[in-house]
Design a protein around this nucleic acid. Structure first.
Length: 586
RNA sequence: CGGGGUGUGGCGCAGCGGCUAGCGCGCAUGGUUUGGGACCAUGAGGUCGGUGGUUCAAAUCCACUCACCCCGACCA
């Protein structure tokens, strides 16, 4: 490709709309262009990269026996009502109405369609297992697109769906896909961390995400460097520390030495002005972990009373899951007041049974807690569950955080940020049951197909590579996905010797099947070198009167500081050899 | 949806009641240049996001509205 003919210009100044690194570099390099919030065009350079990523993914899917197909973007809304995910996807589902007033969804994903399809064609265990995939545009009306390609409303995604006869088969498919994903990231030279994940609106039980670790990532990850436990914060657990019972009494000078099982009688204590956990703890001279915190949510319009130990925070994803609700938000002050509760002094003790109380299991780790008295200016001490109050649900709804104890070993948890670069789910049978996707086993018994699904967003992957691999000059593409392998950069193009030598090298490289971007512009060296660096093409070849004097050209890798001189005679052979060894290594 | 910000040639910005709306980059033409974003000359390109209002006069003030960005909510 001749640079002078290339559609899309490099920009010297970063468009002001771009904040994140990958967004800025991709815009400046002329790889993408924004059309609307979260909607992008891929220009020729960006599109080449995307297609290379796509091919790598396709090869790895085919390698494990995946069969590619194409599924519709326009999907009858009935499919979504049938699966029950119309509600869980909520406003993220784009819909439209056709001329017959029939409502259609613009596919945000394709589990419904594929399950319906498989239902039609699979009747026997002999048809299973099955791995089907598609690489297509998906649409989601994200509440807030951001970060360039990292979170968009229209995106190309590879989705593979696995169909097995039983859990064991699903496990096998799941492991296969995890390996395929690892192969993909390796070929993209993208280091990832595999973490336990929440399955969100997709539904299902077990789920893992592949995270590209970077501070700019929007997901938070909690991990243990001792045993390797790693999970998305939404899912992460921690071992809650036991809290010795004591302080409110001691703070009054009573030298008590209590066992956890020694429950003291509830006593009211004045705590004027102390509303937050911190204020109460300070006032009483105790630590926050010896208090109980009351928090109020509205879950699909139902009022929920949460009790959790004072040192912990509520994990809203966990809460949403245990409640099996779609919409969760903090209750407003009015809603709290209407229920007869006193914010800042609310108590689970004595609240009407009509209120649903959900508690974190941390309230059983410790005893004689301080809780609100449900009366302004007062708290209760020596509150104990279940002696003093009942709950509808007692489970883990706490947010894990850095510094907590690892749930799997004796180590401590750390936290970091990452970009979700792939997500695998064990769906189980809930979709196949809803769609009647059953097969007959060897005994002639109908059974629901056991499903899994495995997604990778291509644009997100592309952006993640840039986030991960760049310097202050620009992008550094791995050879496997670079838009071109070689940047041919002649200087003094008005010099006939240079131009004819460059043309010759250009032709020869192309003959060898090497992808070359030929900078045939008559610009100054600085312009060309800077564009070469910005575009991030792995190998730069410079030809100039100077190098021609020694019958050579200069070769410089984007990743290296130093350049080397290659004799002109067999330079293209040498380059082809270098690229091949690298390609194999990659 | 809540909070904040920004809309002026392709990109980055200035102008914030007064005359013909400027600057840098980029673009075009000619010339001189060329190893890390060269220089000179000439030139093209803008209904100042939109609508309505105030005024002798609006890019500039007011109201509404739209779009985009950031934080939060939310979200594979």
């Amino acid at each position: 490709m001749r640079f002078s003919k290339l559609f899309g210009k490099t920009l010297r100044q970063t468009p002001s709309e771009a904040e994140g690194t990958s967004h800025q570099l991709l815009l400046r390099a002329g790889m993408i262009a924004q059309e609307a919030a979260g909607i992008y065009s891929f220009l020729p350079l960006g599109w080449r990269v995307l297609r290379k990523i796509e091919n790598i993914i396709r090869e790895e899917m085919d390698r494990v026996g995946g069969q590619e197909l194409s599924l519709p973007v326009l999907q009858p809304i009935e499919l979504w009502l049938k699966s029950g995910r119309y509600a869980s996807f909520g406003k993220s589902l784009f819909t439209l109405t056709d001329r017959k007033e029939h409502v259609l969804a613009l596919g945000p994903t394709h589990e419904e369609v594929i399950t319906e399809l498989v239902h039609k064609y699979v009747q026997s265990y002999r048809d299973l297992p099955l791995l089907l995939y598609q690489i297509q545009t998906k649409l989601r009306d994200e509440p807030r697109p951001r970060g360039g390609l990292l979170r968009v409303r229209e995106f190309i995604m590879k989705d593979l769906y696995s169909f097995d006869v039983d859990e064991a088969g699903l496990d096998e498919s799941y492991q296969k896909m995890i390996q395929a994903y690892k192969n993909i990231y390796a070929r993209l030279e993208l280091p990832v961390m595999m973490v336990e994940a929440d399955s969100g609106a997709i539904g299902g039980k077990e789920s893992h995400e592949f995270m590209v670790i970077t501070e700019s990532g929007e997901d938070e990850i909690v991990y243990c460097s001792n045993c390797g436990y790693a999970a998305n914060i939404e899912k992460a657990q921690s071992a809650k520390t036991f809290v010795p019972s004591r302080s409110p009494e001691q703070s009054e000078g009573e030298a008590l030495n209590l066992e956890a099982k020694d429950l003291l009688p509830v006593k009211e204590v004045a705590t004027p002005g102390a509303q937050t956990i911190e204020e109460v703890a300070n006032f009483l001279g105790i630590s926050p972990c010896q208090t109980l915190k009351a928090i109020f949510y509205s879950a699909d319009a139902e009022f929920i009373f949460i009790v959790i130990r004072g040192d912990l925070e509520v994990n809203e994803t966990k809460l949403k899951n245990v409640l099996k609700r779609n919409e969760l938000r903090l209750a407003s002050e009015n809603e709290v007041r209407e229920k007869g509760l006193v914010a800042g002094f609310a108590s689970p003790i004595g609240v009407t049974l009509a209120l649903k109380i959900v508690a974190d299991n941390s309230i059983t780790i410790g005893s004689n807690f301080v809780a609100g008295a449900n009366k302004p200016g007062y708290h209760l001490k020596n509150v104990n569950y279940p002696r003093d109050f009942q709950v509808a649900l007692l489970t883990d709804i706490a947010l894990a955080k850095s510094g907590d104890n690892c749930p799997k070993c004796t180590g401590k948890l750390s936290s970091t940020h990452g970009i979700e670069a792939g997500h695998v789910f064990k769906l189980g049978t809930f979709l196949s049951e809803k769609f009647g996707a059953f097969f007959l086993d060897g005994n002639g018994t109908p059974k629901p197909i056991v499903m899994g699904c495995y997604g990778i967003g291509l644009g997100r992957l592309l952006a993640a590579i840039v986030e991960q691999s760049h310097d202050n000059k620009g992008i550094i593409w791995p050879l496997s996905v670079a838009p071109y392998q070689v940047y041919l950069c002649p200087l003094h193009l008005d010099n006939p010797e240079v131009s004819s030598a460059a043309e010759k090298v250009y032709q020869e490289l192309q003959k060898r099947g090497i992808e070359v971007l030929f900078d045939d512009r008559n610009d100054s060296p600085g312009v060309k070198f800077n564009d070469a660096d910005l575009l991030g093409i792995p190998l730069r070849l410079t030809l100039s009167p100077r190098t021609l004097q020694s019958r050579s050209m200069e070769a410089k890798w984007r990743t290296k500081k130093e350049a080397q001189l290659l004799p002109l005679g067999d330079a293209t052979i040498e380059i082809s050899r270098l690229l091949n060894t690298l390609q194999i290594k990659g």
